[in-house]
């Protein structure tokens, strides 16, 4: 049999474009990512709600545990589960990553690094980065400086989390994230 008879006819259509993985299949990760990122970026809501939204967005148990632990560490560090209160305290006292006792500052950075390191691959990483920024430098908008700090921290956190989610191997990253989040929790309890 001649070879041209068995070959599939070449399509004249343009090659298919690559789609974002979150735009089809399950809509839940994209929706919960948007919700979690909005709640974190606007500091409106409550720590437990943010933790659950991050967990649903990640859809991975390791990342969800890290998110819950880190957000609780933020809440313990400021003594309130209200994200409004956490942002308001930073607007008055200064960014969480630079003011307060050394233990509390260390707790903040550990929690933020845990969120970045354990961020899942893809769009949900943005929500993790926004949550990390909320803890480290998330003052309520009281003026242009506060807004600049907040926007810059959120952008940096989201970018770092996106890169970490793409580059770092999942299981070791989640193990490191759990260790960092646990350390943050202990430090936040010890240095409220």
């Amino acid at each position: 049999m001649p070879p041209e008879d068995t070959a599939a006819p070449r399509s004249l259509d343009p090659p298919p474009r690559r789609r974002s993985p979150v735009l089809h299949d399950d809509p839940l990760p994209l929706a919960t990512t948007a919700a979690a990122a909005t709640v974190a970026a606007t500091s409106s809501g409550e720590a437990v709600l943010l933790a659950v939204l991050l967990g649903l967005a990640a859809a991975e148990l390791g990342s969800a545990v890290v998110a819950a632990t880190a957000v609780v560490a933020f809440a313990l560090r400021w003594g309130s589960t209200s994200l409004d209160a956490i942002a308001g305290a930073q607007a008055v006292l200064g960014p969480g990553g630079s003011v307060g006792p050394a233990g509390a500052v260390a707790a903040t950075w550990c929690a933020a690094m845990a969120l970045v390191v354990a961020a899942p691959a893809g769009w949900p990483a943005i929500a993790f980065g926004a949550a990390a920024a909320l803890g480290v430098a998330g003052p309520a908008p009281g003026g242009p400086a506060d807004i600049a700090v907040r926007v810059g921290a959120t952008a940096a956190g989201a970018a770092l989390a996106l890169v970490a989610g793409l580059v770092l191997p999942r299981r070791p990253a989640q193990a490191v994230g759990i260790a960092l989040a646990g350390a943050a929790l202990l430090l936040a309890v010890a240095h409220p």
Binding site: S20, L23, H24, P27, L30, A31, T32, A34, A35, A36, A37, T38, V39, T42, S44, G45, E46, V48, L49, L50, L53, T81, S82, L83, D84, A85
Partner: peptide, 25 residues
């Protein structure tokens, strides 16, 4: 109250994504 505000913001974001998703697809 903080929970209610957060839930309202989250639902608004969810609704926006739900509305925009067909266009994105």
């Amino acid at each position: 109250g903080a929970y209610d505000r957060g839930a309202a913001v989250a639902v608004a974001a969810l609704a926006l994504v739900a509305a925009a998703r067909p266009a994105l697809r």
